[in-house]
Amino acid sequence: MISGNNPGNIRPGIGYKGENGTHKGASGLFVTFDTMENGIRAFFMNFYAAVHKHGRKTLTDYITAYAPPDDDNDTESYINTMAEKMGIDADEPIPLDTHTALQLARAQFEIEDGAAAHTITEEQLAGGLAAFRASVAGFFLKC
């Protein structure tokens, strides 16, 4: 079971749709969501902001900001694991297509949540992506 329907371990402060509280995790305070789909939507919104607002175009840039070493993370291992799971080069731009978006989410959820990530259904993942797309049209190309 994933704590608080928050598979991306998003911290408070943004005010994403469906937020309904917080919970204390091993490395701090995290948002809780009313549904898994809203937690997944928030994950994609967070990724969108990383790419478009902050210019984080590669896994190295993205993960270094998402799981910084000064926050007690093994950032280098995180980056390498993500690149391996996704089959992409960590220092090349992340392809912004649906297939890669789903790979990114699955890989990151596995790192963040371990075996519990496998409890997320394909329907929940698709629902979260669809809810994201309804908010930010055209970000991930359909494939």
Rank of each mutant, 00 (worst) to 15 (best):
I88Q: 14
Q108K: 13
D34T: 15
H54G: 02
T75M: 14
N46G: 13
F139S: 00
A137D: 03
P95V: 08
L129N: 01
G18D: 10
F44W: 06
F47W: 05
M45I: 08
A126M: 01
T22W: 08
C143D: 04
T35Y: 08
L59M: 06
K17D: 13
P68R: 12
T100F: 13
A115P: 09
K24E: 15
T98L: 07
K53W: 01
G4D: 02
A90W: 03
D71T: 07
P93G: 10
G21A: 04
K17F: 11
I40A: 04
A137H: 04
A131T: 07
R11V: 01
E76C: 12
I14D: 11
A49P: 04
K57D: 02
E76A: 15
C143W: 00
I111V: 04
F43H: 14
L129V: 05
Y66K: 11
G8K: 08
T81E: 09
L104I: 06
G39V: 13
E110W: 06
A42W: 05
F43G: 13
E122Q: 06
K57P: 02
V51I: 06
H23W: 10
D97A: 01
Q124Y: 06
Y62T: 05
F33N: 11
M45V: 14
K85N: 14
I88N: 06
L29Q: 14
T119H: 10
G25E: 09
E122F: 03
K53D: 15
T60N: 11
D34R: 15
Y48K: 06
R133G: 03
K53F: 10
T75F: 15
Q124S: 01
R41Q: 15
I10H: 01
M36H: 05
T32D: 13
E37M: 12
N46W: 02
L125H: 01
D97K: 08
F43R: 07
A117W: 02
T81A: 12
T75V: 14
A107K: 09
H52R: 13
N20F: 07
I94W: 08
M86F: 12
M86D: 12
T121D: 10
R11A: 05
L104G: 07
A26P: 03
F43L: 12
L141W: 02
G25I: 05
G138A: 00
S135V: 07
A83D: 09
E122Y: 00
T22E: 12
K57I: 03
F33S: 11
